[in-house]
């Protein structure tokens, strides 16, 4: 049994947040991934038991969403956006470079279990294209060389900062955040970068502003 009593307790805690417990299923499956590194059969059965639904229902849900993995991912799970904008602006090259560097393809872990790679869809970061994610934290505006460098540094155990977010932790740590989002890291790293400030800076430089209250034309 990989699901400890403590995890079961946390599952119940999640369930109690919602007017109807089943609403907690998605966070609960994230919690399963945070302890098991994937959605395990034990995890499915534990969710089913806590919510009083069938394991098949949990399986149906867990297989619908791409973030739930049916086989182990790496300690660090790397995503490269290959949707039109990122892909054509360089994401394809980034993916190829990482695939070569890691020796794995889409949704495959490296033999040492350190990394896994995934071709991912649009991450709502097109302004920062091409983007990759490590454990779902952004590494924006990346080049193939920069992407490989991220892997190299992680492999050496060096700290790698997300370009918008805290330092990279692990796949399982992020999955825990997805279950319990108030993870105390909101103040870590930068979240607002040059691209997010592009308009504001332009406006300031050119003395543009919204009319203030009571200033309407």
């Amino acid at each position: 049994m990989t699901i400890s009593d403590q995890t079961l307790e946390r599952m119940r805690e999640l369930a109690s947040r919602y007017p109807q417990p089943r609403s907690a299923l998605l966070p609960m499956l994230h919690l399963v991934q945070s302890v098991d590194g994937e959605v395990t059969t034990d995890g499915i059965n534990a969710c089913a038991e806590v919510l009083g639904i069938s394991p098949a229902e949990v399986t149906g849900v867990s297989t619908f969403y791409t973030m739930y993995k049916r086989k182990p991912v790496g300690e660090h799970h790397i995503g490269v956006c290959v949707n039109t904008l990122c892909g054509l602006l360089g994401g394809d090259a980034v993916y190829d470079a990482l695939s070569e560097r890691l020796g794995v393809g889409h949704n495959e872990p490296t033999a040492d279990g350190k990394f896994s790679l995934e071709r991912i869809e649009c991450q709502a970061a097109c302004t920062h294209a091409p983007v990759m994610t490590v454990d779902w934290e952004f590494i924006d505006d990346v080049t193939p060389a920069a992407a490989v460098d991220v892997v190299d540094r992680l492999e050496r155990g060096e700290q790698v900062l997300s370009t918008r977010g805290p330092a990279i932790r692990t796949f399982q740590a992020t999955e825990h955040t997805l279950a319990f989002p108030d993870d105390g890291l909101a103040g870590e790293g930068t979240s607002v970068d040059d691209k997010m400030l592009a308009g504001l800076r332009y406006a300031k430089e050119h003395n543009m502003s919204a009319p203030a209250h009571g200033q309407e034309a």
Binding site: T41, I44, I53, S54, P55, V58, T59, G60, T63
Partner: peptide, 22 residues
């Protein structure tokens, strides 16, 4: 009242199935 078969996966991969051990 026996939801032991469910739709699994999605899109063109959507298929009927059971939990792995039930």
């Amino acid at each position: 009242g026996d939801p032991m078969i469910e739709l699994l996966e999605r899109g063109a991969q959507q298929q009927v199935g059971t939990a792995s051990d039930e």
